[in-house]
Design a binder for these strands. Structure first.
Length: 472
RNA sequence: CGCGGGGUAGAGCAGUCUGGUAGCUCGUUUGGCUCAUAACCAAAAGGUCGUUGGUUCAAAUCCAACCCCCGCAACCA
């Protein structure tokens, strides 16, 4: 049995779960379930990113202890992950004692690639952050949020010497030793890598208290990305435990907006520790609301909980895995969602199960000895192996629709009328076989619906009492 | 000239690498069927493939220029 390790991006705790987090989980979960069905032993990691000034700030606003704030949020996220049906095996909170300890060990291992240097730039005391030169020019030296002039500030930071790894990393990306999907993102990253300076990986404790202290220097706290990225291996027990059975990860799923951290800083850290790079980084697109980025200020945020509560988890996974492009940005609108639910899930699949089960049970046909109902076709595998989940899902759907076509061609109801019992039985068996065959390939995508369907045709066939996907 | 993605039927997209009668899904219209969640199946209508020019027997596809939309530019999945 081969071991495979799949990771999800750990969400930052300054808000509630949104559609984008759901997207990441759904993709990683499909991948994990697919690999497990192929007979691999699979680990799927999930967790929460709980350090950083923004979180501390948020807790301050709410006038609660930071730890209490993250504890509460972490609980909300954990419930959300469960609600999505994510089959995770390993869970990490970056405030776990063991995570913090291991990150400090990681820092020590990276020491020969770390140096201390001064950073000078424009700073807003209101925002408590440095701003880029470009931003400075655009705002003509005055912070638009605080109406205060930016100040020149100097501070000491630790830096990770990216230049130690650049050439090696460039080669790893170019040769797909670390495969970045989709291809256009790979190009983007290669370009970005050329221009990347050394990475600042700490902040003075005066500026950032809520974080992991730098070992042997109480005046500095680690930059959150060093802390957050490490989760992928601390959760496996690194460095105390030998993680070579699971690491390198088979695939790491990330949003396109955080790909750069995963494709540049993270590999540099891994190289610094002498660990291999992940085999694949899958960068998915953003879910837009009517062509616009979802944002609280525009007020177009769609709450995933609302969708799930109304239509169920299978419907949610169905839409986001099939109609939201795996790699590119795509739109969510309630109209699109409802159309897909009614036309495809209810009419194509739900109704198919109903009509076929009714025919089988009415005619007392025994369903046994099905062939091939627990295999993936080569076309399907090819798409899944390329992480083209939406396309693989399309392929499965063609199979589902094919069963509806075949029913109309064969007209089993006529065979029943004509009393052709033998032909009818063979025909229904073939149709059920076709359906279950497609259903098996549906399992990674719609785990709960597909197991219900398998149950319907297992042993005594009875049409489900309540439709699988009731129409709204 | 910062980097990247995109502009193809009312909507959403494939096709562009490897030039050869323009395709899929939804929607619309019509027909068929009656096992089924008024579900299913079939057919039809609907496009100057962003603009202009070039290469070619032939361009959505190759080349050049331009127009428009969208992301990214250090902590937003």
């Amino acid at each position: 049995m081969t071991k495979k390790y799949i990771t999800t991006a750990i969400p930052y705790m300054n808000g509630n779960p949104h559609i984008g987090h759901a997207m990441d989980y759904c993709l990683a979960d499909v991948c994990a379930r697919y690999l497990a069905l192929l007979g691999n032993e699979v680990k799927l990691q999930a967790g929460t990113d709980e350090h950083g000034s923004k979180i501390a700030q948020k807790a301050d606003e709410l006038d609660v202890e930071v730890q209490d704030y993250v504890d509460e949020k972490a609980e909300i996220f954990r419930d959300f992950i469960a609600k999505l049906g994510v089959s995770y095996t390993d869970y990490v909170r970056t405030t776990n004692e063991w995570h913090e300890r291991r990150v400090q060990d990681i820092w020590r291992k990276l020491k020969k690639h770390i140096y201390l240097a001064k950073y000078e730039g424009w700073y807003c005391t209101g925002c408590e952050r440095f701003i880029t030169d470009k931003e400075y020019e655009e705002n003509e030296g005055i912070c638009p949020d605080h109406l205060k002039p930016y100040e020149k500030l100097e501070e000491e930071n630790y830096y990770l010497r990216l230049s130690d790894f650049k050439d090696k990393l460039k080669k790893a990306i170019e040769t797909d030793e670390m495969l970045i999907l989709p291809g256009f993102r790979k190009k983007e990253i290669l370009k970005l890598l050329e221009e990347s300076p050394d990475v600042s990986i700490s902040r003075p404790v005066t500026q950032l208290k809520w974080g992991i202290p730098v070992p042997d220097d109480p005046s500095q706290v680690m930059y959150v990305w060093v802390d957050a990225l490490s989760n992928y291996i601390t959760v496996l027990g690194y460095p105390e435990e030998d993680i070579s059975a699971w690491w390198p990860a088979t695939a790491q799923f990330v949003g396109k907006d955080i790909l750069r951290f995963h494709a540049i800083i993270w590999p540099a850290m891994l190289m610094g520790m002498g660990l291999p790079l992940p085999k694949t980084l899958v960068s998915h697109g953003m879910v837009l609301a009517d062509g616009q980025k979802m944002s609280k200020s525009i007020g177009n945020v769609v709450d995933p909980n609302e969708v799930i509560d109304k239509y169920g988890i299978d419907a949610f996974r169905y839409f986001f895995l099939r109609h939201i492009d795996t790699f590119a940005d795509s739109d969510f609108t309630w109209k699109k969602f409802e159309d897909a639910y009614n036309n495809e899930l209810a009419n194509d699949l739900g109704n198919l199960v109903q009509r076929l089960a009714t025919m089988v049970s009415k005619n007392n046909v025994k369903i046994e000895e099905l062939n091939g109902a627990s295999e993936f076709s080569s076309e399907y595998k090819e798409l899944m192996d390329k992480y083209e989940f939406a396309k693989a899902f399309d392929y499965v759907w063609e199979k589902v629709q094919g069963v509806n076509k075949k029913i109309d061609e064969r007209k089993p109801w006529q065979l029943a009328k004509n009393g052709e019992k033998g032909v009818l039985e063979d025909c229904l068996k073939e149709l059920v076989n076709d359906l279950l065959n497609a259903n098996y390939m549906l399992m990674p995508f719609l785990p709960s619906a597909s197991s219900k369907i398998a149950e319907v045709f297992d042993g005594e066939v009875k049409p489900p009492e309540t439709p699988l996907f009731p129409k709204s």
